[in-house]
Design a protein around this nucleic acid. Structure first.
Lengths: 149, 149
DNA sequence: CATTATAATGAAAATGATTTTCATTTTCAT
DNA sequence: ATGAAAATGAAAATCATTTTCATTATAATG
């Protein structure tokens, strides 16, 4: 469990522990898929009513900085966060019809990206690759109302 | 000149012409690189003081919908827009040190993207590929203050 | 265990980019 | 020339996120 990673991060920064933050972290790590601050707050409040949105934002920032969460924007205004699996990285297919998000990983693409960078004498720290379009279901049903989430 | 494309778009939508919009379009199309609404307003106002920010936003939306502009978010809050060169598409290397943006085009990556989509029975309409990192200059100088723009 | 410096909290206010509203002006088909 | 509807811009609204600030909680130390 990479929980100790956060503990270490907290310590090394001279931060203190708190029950609210623990609850947010615990809830976040149990989450599947991509979660916004607002959505996470709803989940957290099922366990503890006294947690505020500000703390959720602050904790998500902490998780992101410590490498336990990855922030993603996709095509909307809100940031969503996803528990990071160490050493792993994936990109996304995003259906504009229903909002469905699928993951993929492609080493060949990454190799080509490195090649591009090398040509420009550029050093990649991270990348964003998002493929937008229509999933199978939506292409069958025809374009329907996009799902809000 | 693809100006006629917009004229056609305006007409087909039952819109009317206006000097403000013409000025915004003209200024935008003469722009190199990526321009935000705010930046574009400054340029436009050099020619015509009476243009408002709202009109710039509205015109940029129109340009984007008609395919004459491409909107990009990169890693910041503000949207920037870039004149679209028809039939062409490119992706970007973004230096986190100085903010420099370089373009690249790589057909092999696009082919692999299509392959990924096929495997998921997904139909790509567009994609976002951004490589973040450090450019040559910045890697020599060491990490300096990031350029705001 | 008591003290105390300071981190954490959450409500409310601030922010910043963008959009909406609305009263007024302009355009253009007739 | 006329009138219906589009365009405008200032101001207000929106919306996600951040900051402020008074209060509370934590933990290192005496």
């Amino acid at each position: 469990m990479e929980r100790s990673l956060l503990k270490h991060f907290i310590k090394s920064r001279g931060l203190r522990q708190s029950s609210q933050r623990d609850r947010v972290v615990e809830t976040f790590l149990s989450q599947k898929g991509h979660t916004s601050a607002e959505e996470l707050l709803i989940q957290v409040r099922k366990k503890d009513k006294r947690v505020g949105l500000t703390t959720v934002y602050r904790t998500l920032k902490l998780l992101t900085e410590s490498g336990l969460a990855v922030e993603r924007k996709f095509n909307r205004q809100v940031s969503t966060f996803e528990p990071a699996r160490i050493g792993q990285h994936h990109d996304h297919l995003i259906c504009l019809g229903c909002g469905k998000i699928m993951e993929f990983e492609n080493k060949n693409i990454e190799t080509l990206q490195e090649e591009v960078a090398r040509k420009h004498t550029f050093f990649i720290t991270h990348h964003v690759l998002e493929l937008y379009g229509t999933c199978l279901d939506c292409s069958k049903k025809g374009a329907k109302k996009p799902k809000k989430k």
